[in-house]
Amino acid sequence: MTDLVDERALVEQARTDPGAFAELYRAHVDRVHAFAWRRLGSREAAEDVVSATFERAWRALPDFTWKDGGFPAWLLRIAANQVTDHVRREARPASDRGQRALSLLAPPAAGAAADDVIEGDDPELRAALARVRPRYAEALSLRYLAGLEPAEAAAALGVSTATFAVVLNRAKHALERELRREEGSR
């Protein structure tokens, strides 16, 4: 509880004090980074998301209001949005024609860098997550990849816990469908 109170005070201070925000940054950067990496599967993409997330958080902090989950949940929601944007950008050249053009310009590397591979990674799951609706991906990610409690994830998404439960349930089914579809296509 004391930590929570301290953090709340720090957030208040960070509204006007970059030094306080830097403290918040150092306290949460690992979690945001891990979240982004698990969603996107690469250090480079995760760092892009982390950068954009904290930049946006800094600019939006004057409008931040404390809810369930507090600052971390709010921050992770911003990160989830950034991940969604990243996935959307990456999906744009996914047409066959686009892929052919890209492969001519930059042949795929033999493999990811050694430090870009995480133990317990699940690329197939991540790919399926990228194909479900962004809303569903956000709900699943905040709940299971970021580890937010249902009330925190609901607050992060700006919905009631009842609505969140509905969204999450649908998201699970959507993800199952995508995984089955992927299995069926192999």
């Binding site: 950067v29 980074h33 891990a34 995480i118 317990g120 990674d121």
Partner: peptide
């Protein structure tokens, strides 16, 4: 499982 996978800290 993916949510508990260890991820290196940012640079």
């Amino acid at each position: 499982a993916l949510g508990s996978a260890a991820v290196p800290p940012p640079s």
